[in-house]
């Protein structure tokens, strides 16, 4: 990324930082931008996984597992901070699980397996009423507590979750950026580009795939955990919604696969356009930007998809 990119990103970050006081801590706008930031977090975590060549169609599973994990912990009396962290852990474990189970699947078949995985969790949440509350879900999730050592306006109500979601986004971008510069990134790229060749060079693919899944699941789980503390309820069709699988994929491919900031920027842009510009005027079609973005990627940015797609060749040459 060039210098201009960094300057732009810095400006966006600064604007996001001062947005709450500028809007007078307006609860609706803060909620809206927090959600966009959470989508940015999930989209970046999706992109991190795609960087290792693993295309997921089931991030709703990790988001929802994080949501349910955090909700249950919070309702069980743990502090919301701990609960959200636990949600992240549950998301990571759930992601590592499907990665191990589907170790032999690649490309489109892995994608289908993750899609089924998310649907399976949705089904479990619907049916395991004793724990999940069934279709009605769980209510009464407490909000984030305020922090005594900070100005009260900045941690109260929507502002607290706003800054936490901003922090999640910054952290996931920082982690991804660190990976890109480290041997982990080198291994991810090698596994993505040529798994067999990587193996011949000493890179055993499976642990790296599981690591990529676990990291991606961790951040999606954290986002899910925070989300349920924002909306204060958790339902199967809310957090295991396919929406949370499709949108990160759309945002990451549209924003630029394998780029550090693209998915987050696309998430903010697409989500805010959809909610601020379209929702008030043509509510029925407010999700149009996602479909258009996707079609644009396929039609006009063929590199956008082809760049990421692994396995252009099959079998040993």
């Amino acid at each position: 990324m060039g210098r201009r990119g960094w300057i732009g990103a810095g400006l966006v970050a600064a604007a996001l930082l001062v947005l709450p006081p500028l809007t007078g801590f307006h609860p609706y706008y803060l909620y809206l931008v927090s959600t966009a930031l959470l989508f940015g977090t999930v989209a970046t975590s999706w992109n991190l996984l795609a960087y290792a060549g693993q295309i997921s169609f089931g991030h709703a599973a990790f988001f929802g597992l994080g949501g349910y994990g955090a909700a249950l912990a919070s309702l069980g009396g743990l502090s919301p901070w701990v609960a959200i962290a636990l949600g992240g852990a549950v998301g990571a474990v759930g992601a590592a699980g499907i990665s191990l189970a589907s170790a032999r699947l690649r490309g489109a078949y892995l994608a289908l397996a993750t899609l089924a995985y998310a649907e399976i969790w949705r089904g479990i949440a619907h049916n395991w009423t004793a724990v999940s509350g069934g279709g009605a879900g769980l209510i009464g999730i407490p909000p984030l507590p305020t922090l005594a050592w900070l100005p009260v306006d900045f941690t109260r109500g929507r502002a607290g979750s706003y800054y936490l979601s901003l922090a999640f986004l910054v952290v996931v971008i920082a982690v991804f950026g660190g990976i890109l510069r480290s041997r982990v990134g080198l291994a991810f790229a090698a596994v993505r580009e040529e798994e067999e060749r990587a193996s011949l060079l000493g890179v055993r693919a499976l642990p790296w795939k599981v690591l990529a899944f676990a990291l991606s699941g961790l951040f999606s789980g954290l986002a899910g955990g925070l989300y349920v503390h924002m909306v204060r309820v958790v339902e199967p069709d809310l957090v295991f919604n396919r929406y949370f699988s499709i949108l990160p994929l759309v945002m990451a491919t549209f924003g630029g696969l394998h780029t550090l900031l693209g998915p987050a920027m696309a998430a903010l842009g697409l989500y805010l356009v959809s909610e601020l510009l379209l929702h008030p005027y043509v509510p029925a079609f407010h999700q149009l930007p996602y479909a258009l973005a996707l079609i644009a990627v396929v039609l006009y940015l063929p590199g956008g998809l082809a760049g990421l797609l692994p396995g252009k060749r099959s079998g040993a040459a």
Binding site: I55, F57, G107, A108, A111, L112, R242, Y243, S245, I246, L249, V250, T253, Q287, L288, Y290, A291, A293, L294, I295, V297, V298, L299, P302, L305, A306, L309, G311, K312
Partner: peptide, 20 residues
């Protein structure tokens, strides 16, 4: 107009069309 590999790129496209 789908790029190769078709299996995967078609999944991406049609996941979006399904939402639409």
């Amino acid at each position: 107009r789908l790029p190769e590999p078709r299996e995967l790129s078609s999944l991406v496209l049609t996941f979006g069309l399904s939402l639409l």
